[in-house]
Every structure is written in structure tokens, then in C-alpha cells.
Simulated assay, not measured.
Amino acid sequence: MALIVAPPAAAQEAAAPLRVVSQGPGTLYRADPTVQFVVHSEKAGRDYLVQVTPPAFGPWLPGQKAAVAYVLDGGYGIMGPTARLLGGSNAMLPAYVVTVAYPAGQPSSRERDMLFATAVRPDGSKALGGGAEAFMGFIVDELRPWVEAKYPVDRAKSVLMGHSQSGIFTANVLARRPDAFASYLIASPSVWAQPDIAERLARVSLQGPPRRVFVAYGEDEAPHMVSGGRQVARALARNKAAVVSRSEVFAGADHISFYPELAARGLGYLLPRKRPINYPNPTPVPAETLRRYEGVYVLSDGRRLPIALKGGKLATTLAFPVELDALPRPGRFFVNGVDVQFTFEGPPDGPAQLLRIDYLGEVAVARRAP
């Protein structure tokens, strides 16, 4: 099926007035592609640090959109680059990762943002919540539309991910506004802060398709955390009309030690590839045959894709220069390590007239330029 270029209705919504205070490059490593923004939320009445890490390759076809994961607690500084790396493997779909944290030099309001009401911790002290309604408004009504207007992301492949107090917040977004995201990753939820969350999750109802949910916690966490994770997992497992869920207990892990595995296990479950990347052996093709495929091919959005014979192989440039290796079927080529295939079509003894590009299971057609 050919790729439909028209954007989904959700992408046509006007972005909420999220004001960018500052913008700069990422700082994790020398070639870090992350862009960071300080944005001001009118709903929450404060600034947030938003970091956006793009996928390593794609989306590239006309009108194509990528998966997107919104990760709270700044992804602890590792989720953006980890997901970028795994998106180039069979672990998960390539995805934009949007992390949310607090700007340097400004106080954190994490506890207030993540909890809907003041709660009593297991040690008897108070956790001063009450700002989660406003923070949910920032995430759902300000940040999400801003990201969708700025980047080619698909709400139908969106994830909200939170851990600990942000895990109970993520569970609450699912319970209160389940249509906000396509899927949810709830890690070590602080159920002690809201004991009725399991009941709320068991009552979630939807008009559309069920939401995918991944619940995780560590085997060696404090007993009240293990109990909370188990309650959430069981409640979701019962609500089969609204949720398709998977839960995982990480053996030998404490409250934080399993977090690095959540990209591969959690995001991999919520953002699975349609098909695995294959690594076939190239098929030798005579140079005179390859010359039939040389030329410039024009995509539906007007981009021109030159295909040239270099060093005995066809080569072109997508997001970066690539070489095309031949498959056994005539006219079909692949790029090593990337889920993309090229199929040239035309007369058996003349130049190819049409090029089909299949990337991540979506297909676009390019025609030979006159």
C-alpha cells in the first residue's frame, strides 16, 4: 500500500501557546543530535527543560511520521541516546524521544507536579502534591501539540513514560485522559501516594482501540513498591476492553537499576517494528544491468533522488549517503542494516521508469525524471 501523504487530523490541530524561552544543542557527547529547549508553561506557571533526540534514520518518505516517546524525569539523562541507538536495531521502532525535566538554576517542583494531592509517604512524612492537574495540562495540551507541530511525529505511535512518582503520574494520565497517548510505560509506580489508582485503571474505558501498556518494577524494591506495581499490573490485566498490557518484574533489580533496560523491553513492546531488519548476502549484478537503474527519480513531494553507479554499486543519499546491495529478485535492492528496500520497475531491456521505496513498512513511489 502506498503511503498516504495527508497528515492525520490530530496533526492539523493548532498548537497550544507554549513559549520557547531558550534553545541550544545537546551536551551529552560530541556528536549529540539532541536539541534542548527551555519552555514556559502557562498551565503550570513555570519553565521546563525539554530535550528532543531524533531517531538515527528517518522518517524520510513523503508524509511519513515517526514514533515518539515523551519521557518524564529527563529520562535520567540516558533514555534519549539509548532509544536512538536501539531504534537502529531490531529492538524497537526508530522514535523521537522528548524528555521533560527542570532547567538548571531553577527549583524542581517534581513532587508537586507528579502527585494530584498531598500524600503520606511510607515513612510517615508528607509528600506535597497537588500540581499534577496543571502538569498534565502542560504535557497533554501544551507540549504534545507543540512537538507535533514542530517534528514529524505520529500520535498513533506515541508513548508516555514515567518512573516512581512520575510512574504514578503516567498511570493517572491513562486513567483520566486515556486518549492522550497511544501507549503508556508505567515503571515502579508510587501507589502509596494514591491507593485508589488500581481501581481507577480497572474502570478505564475508551471509544477507540485499546491502549498498550507496559508495567515494570524491580524484584528487590521495597515491599510497598513491589505491592504497588503488582496492583497496577493486575488492574490493567483485568481491563481487557480498554488495555492490552504486559508486566515485567526485573529479577534482582532495585528501584532504579532496571531503568536502563526499559528502552529495549518497555519501548520495544510499545513501539515494535512491523518486521525485523534483515542482513542478507548481496547478489552480484553486472554493471550493464545496474546502469539501467541510474538516473534521477522524483518523489511526490518534489524531492529528486539521484541514483548513480559508483565503485560497482548503486548509491544515493537519503538522510545520509547509502549504497544499494542487490537482492536475488531482479530490480530489488536493500541497504545493509536499515529497514529499507528499493524496487526498480520498467521494461526488461530499457531504463527503469519507476522506483518504489519501502521504509519501515510504508511505501512511496518515485518516477524517473524526463
Rank of each mutant, 00 (worst) to 15 (best):
M1S: 15
A2M: 13
Q12L: 15
E13S: 04
A16V: 06
S22R: 12
L28H: 10
R30S: 12
A31V: 06
P33G: 14
Q36F: 05
V38T: 13
E42K: 09
E42F: 05
A44N: 13
L49M: 09
V50M: 00
P55T: 02
A56R: 06
K65A: 02
G74N: 00
G80W: 01
P81C: 11
R84L: 15
N90S: 13
P94F: 10
V100R: 00
Y102I: 04
G105K: 03
Q106L: 10
A119W: 07
V120E: 12
P122D: 06
P122R: 02
D123V: 10
G129T: 04
G130D: 02
G130P: 09
G131K: 06
G131F: 05
G137A: 15
V140F: 11
E148W: 13
G167S: 02
F169E: 03
T170E: 01
A171L: 00
V173G: 01
V173S: 01
L174D: 11
A180T: 05
A182G: 12
A187P: 01
P189V: 01
S190M: 04
V191Q: 01
V191M: 00
A193G: 08
E199K: 14
L201C: 01
R203Y: 03
Q207A: 14
P209K: 15
P210K: 13
A216G: 11
Y217D: 05
A222E: 12
P223I: 10
V226I: 13
S227F: 12
G228Y: 00
G229L: 04
G229F: 00
R230F: 00
Q231N: 04
V232P: 00
A233M: 02
L236M: 13
R238E: 09
S245I: 06
R246Y: 09
E248Q: 15
I256Y: 13
P260N: 08
L262I: 10
L267Q: 07
L267I: 10
P276D: 09
P276W: 09
I277G: 07
Y279H: 10
P280Y: 01
V285G: 09
V296I: 08
Y297I: 04
L299T: 04
L305K: 01
L309N: 01
L309G: 05
K310I: 07
F320Y: 15
P321K: 07
E323Q: 15
G331K: 11
F334A: 09
V335C: 12
G337F: 15
V338S: 03
T343I: 02
L355R: 03
V365E: 11
A366G: 12
A369W: 05
P370Q: 05
